[in-house]
């Protein structure tokens, strides 16, 4: 049954909230087991980072949407944190199966990984509330829901809030989509559009970590032979 843009947005929101049924923005007992298996227990740092990034997010949300909307920002962040922990657990299960390891100390103590994952979860929450639209991306905007003031929060807003390089954010996108099969088609498409904007533009900004990697790879010298041009 065709839906109006507002109804579609409300359905997406209900579904997102329904999928996050734990009602808690804290790590599950399964996730705590992964933390305990680490050579260096990351629990303290993870909790501290989520709290700090939460305060930053709520402040910037209020700046963008209106100071009277701080409570709304808190709700958005709460949903985002739930999704972050949910996807983290799913990713770790998947990595455990793929790599046959249980000790993810390096990954779970990696700040860029956590910031990227949290940013991606929040991007999903924000995009769900405003409809899948990109700011200035030339990809067109969905009507209805995206006319709200929250449309100012569209990608790449979250990158500036967390001072997160687009190149790092890019690294979690595919794994996020794999780890969260309940993501709606629109949301997958939105994340795919974020990938394209990063690949085409954001990853090539002056301060991108991509340039250090390119420099490093040049210093290491030619490795494998380049693939011959495809026919």
């Amino acid at each position: 049954v065709p839906q109006t843009p507002i109804r579609a947005a409300m359905t997406s929101i209900q579904q997102l909230r329904g999928d996050l049924t734990s009602g808690s923005d804290q790590p599950s007992s399964n996730l705590l087991v992964y933390y305990k298996n680490c050579t260096v227990d990351p629990s303290g740092e993870i909790k501290k980072r989520v709290e700090e990034l939460g305060e930053v997010f709520i402040q910037r949300f209020a700046q963008a949407v209106g100071q009277h909307c701080e409570g709304l920002g808190r709700k958005r962040f709460y949903l985002g944190a739930q999704l972050y922990y949910k996807v983290m657990e799913s990713m770790l299960k998947s990595e455990e199966k793929r790599l046959s390891v249980q000790n993810f100390s390096k990954l779970l103590n990696n700040a860029a990984f956590h910031t990227s994952l949290l940013a991606c979860a929040l991007e999903v929450v924000i995009a769900t509330y405003v409809g899948s639209s990109l700011k200035n991306g030339g990809f067109g905007r969905s009507s209805g829901a995206s006319d709200s003031v929250e449309s100012d929060l569209c990608f790449p807003w979250i990158l500036s809030v967390f001072q997160l390089p687009a190149f790092d954010f890019y690294k979690v996108i595919e794994s996020f989509i794999k780890a969260e099969p309940t993501l709606k088609h629109d949301m997958v498409k939105h994340l795919e559009q974020c990938e394209h904007v990063i690949m085409e533009s954001l990853a090539w900004r002056t301060d991108s970590p991509l340039f250090d990697l390119l420099k490093q790879s040049r210093e290491e010298g030619p490795g494998e032979q380049a693939e011959p041009p495809a026919t």
């Binding site: 990595e95 793929r98 990696n110 860029a112 794994s175 989509i177 794999k178 088609h185």
Partner: peptide, 21 residues
């Protein structure tokens, strides 16, 4: 997740992407 192009190979995941393998 239909229509999304999954490009990562079996030996590629967040552990490798964040240099944590």
């Amino acid at each position: 997740s239909q229509d999304y192009h999954f490009g990562l190979e079996d030996h590629e995941g967040v552990s490798e992407l964040f240099d944590c393998d």
